[in-house]
């Protein structure tokens, strides 16, 4: 898809967000140095996350960088969604005809479920501090996928090419012959693209709760000529027959929900997988494999960054839960060098 043709005001505001994000990175670096200088050993920190946060906030009370980072993160969290939405609204008259034509073009299909009852963990939640979350704006898929992700996040992503990372994860799969793939939490289709590029002969089904996100995935597929089947559906209540897929996968999805939903998703994934089929989940690094200081930084960033379920999900042993829900061989491991993303791999016996 061509880069969003932003007007000068939208482009320059987004550029400012990128520079401010880089500035935030420098402030975080300064805070890290100050924490090191305090001589606090990670093992000496309180176990309880809230107590640890209170302790470190107290220790850093005199740090200008710490307070400025907090304020700047609050600004970026709230403002990035507004800037991206405004930038889109400026170009809407120019791009909407093309977006609508792409939706109608085929060969991909999208089935929206007007009767879908949104789960409580999703409904009305401002994910990533974006007002209204994933389905407030009719064009949230384009706004998030093509403006926030491509023109902002990709420029400040700390681990290199965020799109190459999605392709790299798929190289970890044990088989190369997947024909029917189900992606949970398709969103605007960035991981779906990696799936199709890695398995060009496979048929891909993608589901998501947010119809505006799926509409963008539909355009991405149609533009490339990929016959994705996209359905608005909850991953914990899949409307597919048993033994329908030979790969079920999700990227950066499970940390957006509570444990009960994650368990239900594992049960459903096991049901719809064929015997011998694979499960691959790629997501955030669990707190259990982080030292206490790294965990504090991640938790504070998530808590202040519009991630309502991050802490609950990051404290889970996702592989153990998968085993409890029926994936007997489930294992977890991180991708070097930062243990990110974290992979849960399993198969159906």
């Amino acid at each position: 898809m061509n880069e969003a043709p932003l007007l000068q005001s939208g482009r320059s505001r987004l550029d400012f967000m990128v520079s401010a994000s880089r500035g935030l990175g420098r402030l975080h670096g300064a805070v890290r140095q100050q924490v090191d200088a305090l001589g606090i050993a990670p093992d000496d920190l309180p176990d309880d996350l809230d107590a640890r946060d209170a302790f470190l906030c107290d220790q850093l009370a005199g740090s200008d960088a710490f307070h400025a980072a907090d304020a700047l993160q609050g600004y970026l969290g709230k403002e990035h969604g507004r800037v991206a939405r405004d930038a889109f609204n400026e170009i809407a008259p120019a791009v909407l005809p093309e977006l609508e034509a792409l939706e109608a073009k085929g060969p991909a299909t999208l089935t929206v479920d007007p009767d879908l009852v949104m789960p409580d963990y999703f409904d009305g939640v401002d994910f990533h501090s974006t007002l209204g979350g994933w389905d407030r704006h009719e064009q949230q898929g384009y706004i998030h996928g093509e403006i926030v992700h491509r023109l902002m996040v990709a420029k400040v992503f700390p681990l290199g090419d965020m799109f190459a990372q999605r392709r790299a994860v798929l190289k970890e799969l044990p088989r190369q012959d997947y024909r029917d793939i189900l992606e949970l939490g398709t969103s605007s289709g960035h991981f779906t693209v990696a799936l199709q590029q890695t398995f060009p002969d496979a048929h891909i089904t993608g589901i998501d709760l947010a119809a505006p996100m799926l509409r963008q995935a539909l355009r991405v597929a149609n533009e490339a000529g990929w016959a994705w089947t996209l359905k608005q559906m909850a991953a914990e209540k899949l409307a597919f027959a048993d033994d329908s897929f030979d790969l079920v996968t999700a990227y950066s999805f499970l940390h957006e929900m509570p444990e009960s939903a994650i368990r239900a998703i594992y049960r459903e994934a096991l049901r719809v997988l064929r015997p011998g089929g694979s499960l691959l989940i790629a997501d955030i690094t669990p707190y259990a494999v982080q030292d206490k200081m790294t965990m504090w930084r991640a938790d504070r960033s998530a808590t202040h960054g519009g991630e309502p379920w991050w802490r609950e999900s990051a404290m889970l042993d996702w592989a153990a839960i998968a085993r409890e829900e029926g994936f007997a061989d489930a294992t977890g491991r991180g991708i070097a060098p930062k243990n990110f993303p974290w992979l849960v791999e399993a198969s159906k016996a």
Binding site: S9, R11, S12, R13, D15, A71, L72, G74
Partner: peptide, 28 residues
Amino acid sequence: LDARIDKLTQALMYVAGELWTARDRQAV
């Protein structure tokens, strides 16, 4: 007071963003 300074800082960043947009426009 800390919370208000945070809000003031965020307002400052918003105004700075608008100033930058005007500077960018002038350069163009």
